[in-house]
Simulated assay, not measured.
Amino acid sequence: MTPPDAADNRWSDLDRPPLNAAALRRALVRPQGLWNSLDVVGRTGSTNSDLAARAAGPGLAEGTVLIAEEQTAGRGRLDRSWSAPPRSGLFLSVYLAPSGVPAERWGWLPLLAGVAAATGLARSAGVDMSLKWPNDLLVTIDDAERKTGGILAERAGDGVVIGMGVNVSLRAAELPAPHAGSLALAGAVSTDRETLLRAVLRSLEQWYGRWRDAEGDAASSGLQAAYAAGCATLDRTVRAELPGDRTLVGEAVAVDGDGRLVLATGDGLQEPVAAGDIVHLRGAQGGLT
């Protein structure tokens, strides 16, 4: 017999009800739509790893969605771990295979997912969202920027697996780090995960369709402008911690056509950053924000 306090017991936390997979499928899976299958699992190591393993074999269709109530080995950028209590957030991955889009433009997919998530969550949760380059989701709590979500994209098979983790109902004592936040702590008008999931996946379908129809052109699809408008990194002094233990400090002045962050350095040069960890600074020497 399952103990009443088990993590997968539907009555273990009445403030965090389980997802209704059938209702989500009725709302999101439809003929000629992007999402063709949607599954919810109670617990897994990583939804990204699960979909990537399936993509390595035959038959994984574009538009496959995998959602977990709990991840025990969730991964973020730079091999960081991501953990949260069961049913406290959105933990999902989707498989996209943008045929017709040149592979060199696929680097926009995690940024596209960030725009889609921020747009969908702002509408459904009623919380102001912003993006930290390249793909962190930020909210403001007590006048401080807090990370409430992140996105990880990985090439897999003939496409890309995009994973997303968003803290929804985490309480202050449950936050994994001082700089973390949640939608609830940011004053969300709704923390119903099904409402949030529907909004995020519909927004992702719309942005992906627009970008794909433009053959991956971020400018003509409006994606580049939308990302810049929602990016909290721009017009800030930042420190870029780059591969090879190289560090660069400068003002973030633009996101270019390849999705790179352009930094204006003290010597008057502009240098694009394609990969690395970005730290927002308050000033030339600055504290973290």
Rank of each mutant, 00 (worst) to 15 (best):
L137V: 04
G33A: 13
L14E: 08
W108Y: 05
R210H: 10
V127D: 06
E241F: 11
S99T: 06
W207K: 05
D258A: 15
T119H: 08
V262E: 07
A68V: 00
A254Q: 04
V238M: 13
R282C: 09
G120V: 01
P98L: 00
A55V: 07
A284P: 08
A117I: 10
V115T: 09
D8G: 06
G244V: 07
R239T: 12
G163D: 06
E205H: 02
A173N: 14
G114L: 05
L96Y: 02
P85E: 12
Y95N: 04
E70Q: 15
T47N: 10
G250R: 11
W207M: 01
A172H: 09
A232V: 10
D267S: 05
P110K: 02
V253Y: 10
D8V: 02
A274W: 06
A172I: 11
V115H: 05
G222I: 12
Y227V: 10
L90W: 00
R246C: 02
G266K: 11
R43D: 14
L78G: 01
L248Y: 12
P110S: 01
V160Y: 03
G287E: 11
A55Y: 01
D158Q: 15
P272L: 06
S124M: 09
L92Y: 07
T195V: 15
R77K: 04
V168W: 03
L281S: 02
D258N: 15
S169C: 06
D277F: 08
D192W: 04
A228N: 05
S182H: 05
V41I: 15
L137K: 01
A275E: 15
V40N: 00
T119A: 11
L38P: 04
R16D: 10
V279H: 09
A117H: 04
R25G: 03
G259C: 03
W106A: 12
R75Q: 14
A199V: 13
S99C: 00
D217F: 07
R75G: 05
V139S: 12
Q270E: 12
L28I: 08
N20M: 03
E205A: 09
G63N: 04
R54E: 10
R16S: 03
I141S: 04
K147D: 10
P110T: 09
D136M: 03
P85S: 11
E205R: 03
Y95M: 02
A23L: 08
T44D: 14
T119G: 08
L66A: 01
T140P: 01
D39H: 15
G114S: 05
D136W: 02
L90Y: 03
V41P: 07
P102V: 00
L248C: 10
L234T: 08
P3Y: 05
L66K: 00
R212N: 10
A156Y: 00
R54Q: 15
S221K: 06
L201D: 03
A53P: 00
A252W: 10
G150W: 00
L28H: 02
R171M: 13
A172K: 14
R77G: 14
R75V: 14
A7M: 08
R16H: 14
G181L: 04
V200N: 04
G216A: 13
R105K: 13
A184Q: 14
A214E: 14
V29L: 02
